[in-house]
Amino acid sequence: MANQKEIENLVAKIVSEIVNKTESEEKCECKCCCDEQIPDITAVRHQDDFHVPDAVNEPEYMRMKARTPARIGVWRAGTRLKTDTFLRFRADHAVAVDAVFTEVPEEFIKDMGMPSFRSQCHSKAEYLQRPDLGRLFDDETAAKIKSECKNKPTVQIIVSDGLSSTAVTANIETILPAIMQGLKVYGLDAGTPFFVRYARVGIMDQVTELLGADVTVNLIGERPGLATGESMSAYITYKGYVGMPEAGRTVISNIHKGGTPPVEAGAHIAELAKKMLDQKISGLGLQI
């Protein structure tokens, strides 16, 4: 049997090949849009962004500023923000807003080859105001899931928009193949991965009950912070059930290219599924 490191390396290699391929295809080489443009204000790191003129002690200012993600040393226009500071803040909030309020395109789900279902919510607005409805399917959808997806899978994966559609479109193409590949290495049957629109974490418990899965994985968009719209979490349960305590879920959070990269997270999720099946437990009791 291959050791842990080898498996992870293998998964990483396969997936990075897929990623590199898509990236090279998207490269633009035209002159019209690539020549002159105003520099991207979001490319500046906050730690480097400093505007206080004639600061009394700039070296010490910069040293302490480097210790916090807070936006320090921004200076002022009278008592208001300087224009670039103001627009950068707007851009960072806009990223978060777009992550929450845009929809994951049906096209994207189709391209991923996943069936798509919806919770009991009918709109984003309803979803945001009614967490209870985001945790359940209606009877018709439940029946459809049961008939269209493989029953009694060892591991069931669902992808949920949650509070960030951007997290889904940014990570799924990488994380899903990584998990599938990892499960394959462990010889675990993966069922039919599917997408759920307007879904909360808890909807995975109804999925577990409907399909009779042993392990269920919910890949869900996290509530975005300023400038971080792509972050995803994976909630994983062993024999979950509707109304189970939150402490029974194992969570990997902060999955995005600036946090835990999706390839790495995918391999880790497969490994956790294996451990849960071996130990017959998830959440706080799981020995990792």
Binding site: A70, R71, I72, V74, R80, L81, F89, R223, L226
Partner: peptide
């Protein structure tokens, strides 16, 4: 009052030091 109104620990937005100074005026 917070630096640019951004709470980098609790992940929400509030008023900025700049807003504070402005409100006095």
């Amino acid at each position: 009052g917070l630096p640019l109104g951004d709470d980098v620990m609790l992940s929400y937005q509030d008023n900025s030091y700049h807003d504070n100074a402005t409100m006095r005026l």
